[in-house]
């Protein structure tokens, strides 16, 4: 297990390097710089600014000095928020984004897996069609549409829940979490239904039934593990997506999270902030993919020791 983790982390290094390199040169190649909007800046001030941010050095030198900073865990100073480093900005936005992502993920897993299970128990009956049609609606209503609709209905027409904010008014975390979780819940529902149907048709489920086990035991003990493997594989990318997809929700509900910083950074050509966000998300993707792979290995003993593999 340790070796597996280690080798996966080693494999991630070139991936991250490619990501960093491509982003770095892409950003620098683009017309316009972080200070080009400020028309009235005297040339000497501009030069001083450029020197401060090392923009006067040759590009390749900037690249390596940035890599050096990164290796020490330093994302560099923000170009647009003078006096603050990218690390500080990420730290400021992370708690809200992480909390939102966590709630959304919880909603997605609980509702998704339950709906998938219920549907898989009696395929092609109403018990299957109703949750699956609902899931389809969840997939077809993107967050930028669902969010405003929820606000319109529950916030403005019914006035049940607050329409924006984060942690200020009780209940203001409900709508954003639902908005963000619903699409993922819908995908998870479809995945777990498919996985469960696949597993329930396996011979070993018939064996379990032939042993006279109660249906509940057959489902929970024998079918669930195998049936949830597609869901587990999906969770890694999903979690990264939850974070990167959050800028819509953060914008709609005015939540001081990471997503908004990052979109702002792109609009502002805040080089270091753009780089910081790309690297940060790439890192998240790598880590969460690894975690979901580790869970898959934990579930499936056949993956634990491949050299002894049976079939």
């Amino acid at each position: 297990m340790f070796k597996f983790t280690l080798s996966r982390l080693l494999q991630a290094v070139p991936v991250l390097l490619v990501v960093i390199t491509v982003t770095f040169f892409l950003v620098r190649m683009a017309p316009g710089g972080p200070f080009s909007d400020e028309k009235a800046v005297p040339p000497e001030v501009l030069r001083a600014l450029e020197a401060q941010y090392r923009l006067d050095l040759p590009l390749i030198q900037q690249y390596f000095s940035y890599l050096g900073d990164l290796a020490r865990g330093d994302f560099g100073p923000s170009f647009r928020y003078p006096g603050r480093s990218v690390n500080e900005l990420i730290e400021a936005g992370l708690p809200a984004s992480a909390e939102l992502g966590l709630y959304a993920l919880l909603i997605a897993i609980v509702i998704g897996v339950l709906a998938g299970l219920i549907a898989a128990m009696r395929p092609n009956t109403a018990q299957d069609y109703i949750p699956m049609s609902t899931a389809m609606i969840g997939i077809c209503l993107p967050s930028f549409l669902l969010g405003p609709l929820l606000v319109l209905v529950f916030g403005i027409w019914l006035e049940w829940l607050p329409v924006s904010g984060w942690g200020n008014i009780p209940g203001d975390k409900i709508l954003p979490s639902i908005t963000m979780g619903s699409t993922y819940a819908a995908y998870i529902a479809r995945l777990s239904r498919g996985g469960m149907l696949e597993v329930l048709s396996q011979d070993y489920i018939r064996t379990a039934r032939a042993k006279g086990l109660p249906e509940r035991v057959v489902i929970v003990r024998h079918a669930l593990r195998g049936g949830l493997i597609p869901v587990v594989a999906y969770l890694g990318p999903a979690f990264a997506g939850l974070l990167s997809g959050s800028f819509v929700v953060e914008t709609i509900f005015q939540i001081p999270g990471l997503g908004r910083f990052f979109v702002q950074a792109a609009f502002n050509r805040d080089y270091t902030m753009i780089m910081g966000s790309v690297v940060f998300f790439a890192l998240l993707i790598v880590v969460f993919n690894l975690i979901s792979d580790l869970i898959a290995v934990w579930i499936d003993p056949r993956l634990r020791n491949p050299s002894r593999g049976g079939r």
């Binding site: 396996q202 011979d203 070993y204 018939r206 064996t207 379990a208 039934r209 032939a210 042993k211 006279g212 086990l213 035991v217 003990r221 024998h222 593990r225 195998g226 579930i299 499936d300 003993p301 056949r302 049976g310 079939r311």
Partner: peptide, 30 residues
């Protein structure tokens, strides 16, 4: 009655045992 009074042995032992559980766990279930 199943597994208790009447038991079944299936054809393909490759697919009829649950790959996610130890054989002991499956054995003692009845």
């Amino acid at each position: 009655l199943r597994g208790n009074e009447i038991a079944v042995i299936f054809q393909d032992p490759m697919t009829c045992l649950n790959p996610y559980l130890t054989i002991g766990e499956q054995l003692i279930e009845p």
